[in-house]
Every structure is written in C-alpha cells, then in structure tokens.
Amino acid sequence: MVGLSPTTRSSHLRIVIAPDSFKGTATAVDVAAAIAAGWRTVRSDDELLQLPMADGGEGTIDALERGIAHAVRVPSTVSGPLSDPIAADWLRFVDADGVDTGVVELAQTSGLPLLDPLDPLHAHTLGFGQQIALALDAGVQRLLLAVGGSSSTDGGTGALTALGAKFLDEAAHRLPLGGGALERLSSVSFGAVREVPSEGAYLLSDVRNPLTGPLGAAAVFGPQKGASLDQVLLLERGLARLARRMPVDPTATGAGAAGGTGFGMLAWGAIARSGAEAVCEAIGVGAALPGADLVITGEGSYDQQTSSGKVASEIELVATRHHVPVAVVAGRISVASETVDSAVSLEELAGGTEAAMRDTISWLEAAGAELARRYSR
C-alpha cells in the first residue's frame, strides 16, 4: 500500500467516511465520528461526510437510520431467543423508488448478546419472524432481512413458525422451538405461511456458507454460539433433516447464514443479497462519491475474509467505479489491496492488539489524524 498522492484540487477537501463497526469495541457510527474527529485536528476546514456502514449484521438498522432521510424506528415487543419478551425496533422508510420498505434486524430479536449463558440447542428465531409479521401487518411493500449475529442454529424454523409454518414430529405434534429439536422433524407444512410482500424480501448477509456439511451453519458457527462437539453433531443432523423437507438448495448462497436462518428465509421466498452492497446502495454511498477527494472505510480486521462481501471491499468497489482513492483504518491489517491507497492499523499505532482494543476510540482518532497528515503532504 502506498501513501495518498498530494492533491491538486482546492485546499478544502471533501472526505467521505464509510466504515463498518469494530465488533466488540465500537459501533460504525462511533468509528466514523472518531475518524472524523481525528481528521479535524489536522485539517479543520475540510468537508467530512459520515456514512456509517453495515453488512447485514448488528448495526444495520443504525446505519440505515442515519443514512436515509425520514427513516423511522418502529418499537415492538417480541420473543427473545429463549422466549422471554424483549424490546426491539424495526425500521421503516420510503426508498428512492417510492417503495415502502421495512428493515428487520435479527441481532435485535435473536442475537448472541441477548443470551448469557448461551443455549445452542434451545435458542430460536421466533422473535425475528414475529417482527417480520409486524412489518407485514404495517403494510410494507419490501423487506430487508438483516440476519447477522444469531444466537441460534434453528434453520430459521422459529421465524417461519411465526409466519405460519408448522414443523411436526412423527406423531404430527409441533416440535419445540430451537435447533436441538430438529433431529425429530418428520414433516413441514407451509399451507398457512404469510406471503412475501409485493416488492420482495431480501436476505442481507455476508455469509456464503451452505446450510450443512463441514462448512455449514452448525460446524462453522455452532461453537461460536456455545455448542460442544456433540451438540454440533446433533444440530447438524437436525439441519440435514430440515434440508430434505424444504424446497431449497441447502448449498445456496446465504443458506448457512445466522444458524441456517438464511435457508429458512430463502424457503419463504426471500432473495439473497450482499448485505454490504444493499446498505451501501440504500444510504447512497455511490451518490456521495462524485467530487470526493477520498473515501475512508474500515473494520476490525482487514484480512483475507474482507474480499468476501465485507464492508471495506464493497466501499473499495464503489470508490473504484467513481475513481475516488480509498484509505482503510482497521484494528489489524494482514493483507494488501491494489485498490487501497493508504492504510492505518490501530494495532501498529497503539503498539499492540490489547492496547488498541482498550481505547479504540482514541486510536481511531489518531488514525484519522494520521491519514489527514498523509494527505496534506
């Protein structure tokens, strides 16, 4: 990676700041604000446009709310991942084409941080489906389903149950909620399932894993949700039974997202989309880039997975189309990119990972200042 070239334009620069969250340490909104604050300590007269990003996981509603004029949060109470009632918002806005759009974020209703201790066999996505139903009741024409951050491995059966599906055992009794019960699945009924809205439902995710197998939802993500080896095997058997009873290819892109919730939503009729691409489009990053001198993006770890649909890679792609140079700020940087002009690692600035994570905001400000100095040379 090389330093940014000196500008020949006006002394006042236009900078677009569009990072992802640094998971566990800073939200995307906080990351953008900190980078901007650091930049201003060096170049106070520049125009800074903050467009915090997301990839379909936690923080998607925050990014869309901030980036879309007149977006409205709609409060609701739904079942949490173990059926306790929880407060969660969904988002509503009218897009550029005049389509009434609802956004439901699984992390708010069925997310990993909602459970302590974790319960990989019984955690479910019923609340996610309940919130989808609330958006349908409100009359939205299109749904964006942000499915990152799930606490469960139920194949989306909880969400589908809330939408009217039935998952039955051999005695034609409803199965209990949670992925642990799916190994007893005998039949599935979609007869009473609610219809996808008129302008479609879109599954937003950066996950390309299949539903089952060594790269599937249980094997790869089950341990992150507290599953032991035996529990992973049990969950895998259940997902395999589900796959044989649903009219969806379990290897489809997005099927393994959110403990297989992607698979369930595809079975409902949703269409898989890159979460980062959808958010980027919705908040108008492309429209903001013409005339910009630089776009700054970032994420917790800029590594080999970045190119697989992560926020930074999407921003690089859009910036390249508009011939705008790109800078990256990341907690850790382990790969180089030909489309990145300059990069700053918080780990290097702070002298280590622990120090960078202990005071992430301050080091993000330092990174913003460092980029501003480089661009002033």
Rank of each mutant, 00 (worst) to 15 (best):
H322M: 06
A336H: 15
F263S: 02
G275P: 01
T360S: 12
A319C: 01
A330Q: 06
V318I: 13
L364F: 10
M246C: 12
R358G: 10
A367K: 01
L266Q: 06
L317Y: 04
S334N: 02
L317V: 08
G309L: 00
P325S: 03
T306Y: 00
T353L: 15
A366H: 09
A267H: 03
S308A: 04
S342G: 07
S274E: 11
S307N: 02
I333L: 11
L349I: 14
T353Q: 14
I361A: 11
L294Y: 08
D249H: 07
R245S: 12
G351K: 03
V328N: 09
V340N: 03
G275N: 08
S342Y: 14
A372K: 12
L364Q: 08
R244T: 12
S307R: 14
E281D: 15
P247T: 10
R358S: 15
Y302S: 01
T339E: 11
L346C: 05
E277F: 05
A343Y: 07
L364I: 06
D293F: 06
A355P: 00
H322Y: 15
G256R: 09
G275S: 11
G291M: 03
I315C: 01
I296G: 01
A336C: 05
K310Y: 02
T360N: 02
G254I: 04
A288K: 04
R244Y: 06
R273K: 13
D341Y: 00
P290Q: 02
A356H: 12
A367S: 12
G351S: 09
I315L: 04
V285R: 10
E316F: 00
A282Y: 02
A366T: 15
A350S: 13
L346Q: 07
D293Q: 08
S307E: 06
G264R: 01
E365I: 05
R321V: 11
A330D: 10
M246G: 01
A312G: 02
P250C: 10
S313I: 01
E354N: 14
R358I: 00
V311M: 08
A267G: 15
A288R: 06
D341S: 15
L294M: 09
V248M: 14
V344L: 04
A255E: 11
I283H: 05
G259Q: 05
Y302G: 02
S337R: 14
T360G: 08
A336W: 03
C280F: 05
G300Y: 12
L371V: 06
C280H: 06
S274H: 03
E281S: 15
S274C: 14
T306S: 10
M246W: 05
E281P: 06
R358P: 00
V324N: 01
K310V: 01
G352S: 10
E354I: 11
I283P: 01
T261F: 03
I283T: 09
E281K: 03
I333F: 11
R332C: 04
H323Q: 15
I271H: 10
V311I: 12
I296K: 00
T253E: 13
V311S: 06
M265I: 15
P290S: 02
G352K: 10
